[in-house]
Amino acid sequence: MVRFENVTFEYIRRDEEGNVDSITTALDDLSLHIKKGEFVAILGSNGSGKSTLARHINALLKPTEGKVLVAGYDTSNDKDTLEIRQRAGMVFQNPDNQIIAETVEEDVAFGPENMGMPVDEMQKRVDEAMKRVGLYKKRLESPNRLSGGQKQKVAIAGILAMKPECIIFDEPTAMLDPAGRRMIVETAHELNKKDGITIILITHNMEETVGADRIIVMEKGRIALEGTPRQVFSKGDRLKELGMELPAMTELAQRVGLDGCILTREEFVEAYKKAIR
C-alpha cells in the first residue's frame, strides 16, 4: 500500500536574501513498506521525523531523494497527486484547524466536492460516512458546537466520504480528553477491522499503540526500532534511550520480574497467577 524507498527529506531554511541558512535532515535514507490492511503505530520524540513521514504519504511533502509509492502511484508525479490524496486521507492534531465548512454535512462533503463528484452520489456517500462515525444526527449543526473528539470524527468522516484505502492519523488525540481519545482510537481500530482500511497512527501515548499490528519507533529521521508491540516493548532499555516509555502493564510486569512481554491487564493477571503457583 505504502512504500518508501531510500527516502531523504531536507528542510532548507533561507535568510532574507534567499541564501541557505541551515539544512535539517528530517528523513534520512528511510525505507519502509506498509501492507494493505495493516495497522501501524509510529512513535518517536518531538522532532524525530514522524510528522514529516506522514506528510509524505499523502503527497503534502515530496522526497528530496528517493521515492514514495502510494497505491502504486509515485508521489513525485504531480498529475497523480489527487489520486493519492483520495486514497490516503489524513487526520491532523488540531481539530479546529481542519474543519472548513459551517455545518458537519458540508464539511464532510468538502473532499468529494473537490473531486468533482456528482451531487446524488455525493449526498449518498456523505450520509454513509456520517452514519459510520455516528454523527448523522448532528449533520446540520455547526462543528464549533461539537466536542474535540466529535470534531475529529467529522474529519474522519470527511475522509471516509472519499472511500480511502489508507488513513494517516497525525497525533489525533493530543488535544483530547480521555473519553475523546478512546473514541478516536476505537474508531481507527474499527475502520481497520471492518472496512479493511490501512491505518497509520502517530502518537505519543504508548497505551494507544498496544493494539497495533506493528510499531515503528523513529529517531533522527530513521527507523530506530520496529516490530510487533510485543517485540518492541520487550526492549525497554532501548525504548527509554529513544525517549519513550513502556505501557503501564508492561513496565510493572518487568519490574516485578514476570516472564514474557505483557501488554494488557488480562495477560498480567494470567502471568501473575502462573508465577505465584
Partner: peptide, 20 residues
C-alpha cells in the same frame, strides 16, 4: 463521568477480585 482510574488501580482491583 467519562473519567477513569489509573491502569494500575484497575489491575490491582482485578488481582484482588481474584483473591490474589
Amino acid at each position: 463521568m467519562g473519567l477513569s482510574v489509573p491502569q494500575i488501580t484497575l489491575l490491582m482491583q482485578d488481582l484482588k477480585d481474584d483473591g490474589l
